[in-house]
Structure formats: structure tokens, C-alpha cells
């Protein structure tokens, strides 16, 4: 009797341990909805009202970009990759809800992603064409592939209103973003806001000034690199 009780207790222990292990391996979906601000001010299209670190007052007329190479960093330090490539158009709303399926449920200490397309996919016509992203091609004469980002609008200058076009593309302008904020994915799935602070493109580590650096970045590797480096902390997670 005592022996059989012991066996039963052992079996129950094994089962419970198994259940516990299964719980840590449960998977769930994570949804990130994009949002856009400039130092806390919600993005309002075509209004010259935002001010960057250099003092440029500017508006936004168009913002479209690719995100790729997502990595979710668990609390234990495991790196879970999601290689999907997403086209986002802030104005039309295309691609503005990102879904990641089958992420291990649990706590995370941050995430990483690229604004742009990883080199193995940044080849002309490698992505399915659609009417949303038909104008994102990067000319073959400049290396081919796709625009990583188009951020366009107008800025106030002493001479009046002037347009600006921050375009990124090519291997030296791929933006590595890091979001070092803890979050969790619970077993029923979780949803957060992935907020882009537009002013981060123009500061840290280097202040970018439309008047002195330039209002047009394409075809100027040094300008694109400066913007790309600033983009490291352009995203924030909000519950």
C-alpha cells in the first residue's frame, strides 16, 4: 500500500512537472498597432506645427516605410526571430496593424526590427507588387531594391514654405531599431501600440537640420546614414 502510494505521488509529480513545462511553452499572438507622433503631439497631416531638435518647424504629407527582421527578446535573453516584411503607409493605414503569430507567451524585455528590407530581400521585384507600394522601387542605377522609407512634407524657412523628402534606401541606410521596453505576451494574445516619434529621426546621435544638412536625402549617402543612425530609437511601445 505504501509502495503504491509512493508510485502514485511520483506519477502525479511527473505529470505536474510536465504540465508546468507545457505552460511555459504555450504560444500566443502579438499585435502591434502603429501610431505616429512628434514628441507627444499626435500626427496631423499637412499642418506645419511640429518642431525638431534643430528648430525646424515642419509638416508631414506622406509617410510610408517597410519594417523587417523582427526579433523579440525574452526576459531570459532568448532571441525569437520573425522574418516577415511589412509595408506600412501611415496615411492610408495600409499595413498599420502588425500581427505576429505563435510567439512564446511570457515576459519580454524588448524587441528589435529594421526600418527597411534585409539585404537578401532587397532586390528589385522580389516582393509581391500591389497598388499600395507600387512607388517604393529604388532605381537599379542606385543599386535596385526598394525605398526603405519615404517621409515627406514641408518646412518653414525664412524664404517661405519649402518641401522636404527624407528617403532612405540602399545597404548603408538600413535602420536598426531597438525598443528596450519590457512587455508581455499572455496566453490569450496581447496588443500594444508601436509608436513612432518622428522627431527621433532628427536627433540622437546627430541633430539633423533641413536648412543646413539638406531637405532631400536620396542619392546622398552621408545624409541617409545620419537619418538611419538616428532611427535606432524611433519606436516606443505603449500598452
Amino acid at each position: 500500500m505504501r509502495t503504491s502510494s509512493l508510485i502514485l505521488i511520483l506519477l502525479a509529480g511527473i505529470l505536474l512537472a510536465g504540465c508546468g513545462k507545457q505552460q511555459t511553452l504555450s504560444f500566443a499572438d502579438l499585435t502591434l498597432a502603429t501610431a505616429f507622433t512628434a514628441d507627444g503631439q499626435a500626427l496631423q497631416w499637412d499642418t506645419i506645427r511640429y518642431q525638431n531638435e534643430a528648430g525646424n518647424v515642419y509638416s508631414v504629407h506622406n509617410l510610408e516605410f517597410y519594417l523587417s527582421d523582427f526579433v523579440f527578446i525574452s526576459a531570459e535573453g532568448d532571441r525569437i526571430s520573425h522574418p516577415q516584411i511589412v509595408y506600412c503607409n501611415a496615411r492610408t493605414g495600409a499595413g498599420n496593424t502588425l500581427s505576429f503569430s505563435a510567439l512564446p507567451a511570457g515576459n519580454y524585455k524588448g524587441l528589435e526590427c529594421r526600418v527597411g528590407i534585409v539585404p537578401e530581400w532587397n532586390i528589385s521585384n522580389s516582393l509581391p507588387a500591389n497598388l499600395e507600394n507600387v512607388n517604393m522601387a529604388w532605381p537599379e542605377s542606385m543599386g535596385g531594391g526598394y525605398h526603405y522609407m519615404k517621409l515627406e512634407g514641408y518646412t518653414q524657412t525664412p524664404g517661405g514654405t519649402q518641401g522636404y523628402a527624407v528617403h532612405l534606401g540602399g545597404p548603408k541606410a538600413l535602420v536598426s531599431c531597438s525598443v528596450q521596453q519590457p512587455f508581455s505576451v499572455d496566453t490569450k494574445g496581447s496588443r500594444y501600440t508601436l509608436q513612432m516619434n518622428l522627431n527621433e529621426w532628427y536627433r540622437n546621435p546627430q541633430v539633423y537640420n533641413f536648412q543646413t544638412d539638406g531637405n532631400y536625402t536620396m542619392n546622398d549617402t552621408s545624409l541617409m546614414k545620419k537619418i538611419a543612425a538616428n532611427g535606432r530609437d524611433v519606436f516606443f511601445l505603449l500598452p
Partner: peptide, 12 residues
């Protein structure tokens, strides 16, 4: 003009 497309306002 104030609404000239941003692409067409580059220095060159």
C-alpha cells in the same frame, strides 16, 4: 508654390 511636391524641391 507652397504645395509644390516635396520631390521637386530638392536643391538640384
Amino acid at each position: 508654390s507652397p504645395t509644390l511636391d516635396p520631390i521637386m524641391t530638392k536643391p538640384s
